[in-house]
Amino acid sequence: VHHSAMSPEEFISRIMEAEPPEIYLMEDMNKPFTESSMMMSLTNLADKELVLMISWAKKIPGFVELSLADQIHLLKCCWLEILMLGLMWRSVDHPGKLIFSPDFKLNREEGQCVEGIMEIFDMLLAATSRFRELKLQREEYVCLKAMILLNSYLCTNSPETAEELESRNKLLRLLDSVIDALVWAISKLGLTTQQQTLRLGHLTMLLSHIRHVSNKGMDHLSTMKRKNVVLVYDLLLEMLDANTT
């Protein structure tokens, strides 16, 4: 079934099935952390998660119908936002903690050992608190994640060729499906029409904060790489370079 013919319920169940499995860092933690060891753990985990993120994106109905160039650009634009939203979701029931993985949990104070990371931890914790206040539901979370992916590149790209225009139109229709799905998920919560509208507004406004934290995080990681605190390699290097060069 094409996504345009799917009900919002079907669409959500497809993106719920696309959710990546839980991932473990599987490293022996040498506590206390050093600046380098914490950055290495964070980047090792990010690199593993990125591989799963590509498979996740491909399972979002309609994503692989976009041009390959669009698929690449979208993922390169949003990967850190997606990682951060996943982190917020895992941390939502653990105030004051960031649950990077089941075997890698950090307190705000542990950010002290990496220069400049506490500011980012605080922004992540603040956005997580907002999601906690809003009692974010799993259905809403998966919709927001798909929205981040599909929205990430919309305002930086003007299609020129017929192929680009076609892919752009597909992208816009796909965003329609995701918005419909989020609206449907909110409608299931037993709220008044006005409360539903407000909730949609509050949830989508949080995405601008996530973009902001992601930009801060991208600058931080590229600084850490430049200062040789951490060795960035493989897929993570490719994704970081796309944002910094």
Partner: peptide
């Protein structure tokens, strides 16, 4: 071929 391109173009298992 980049790793991203490679992952995007491989068929799902």
């Amino acid at each position: 071929h980049t790793k991203l391109l490679q992952l995007l173009t491989t068929k799902p298992e």
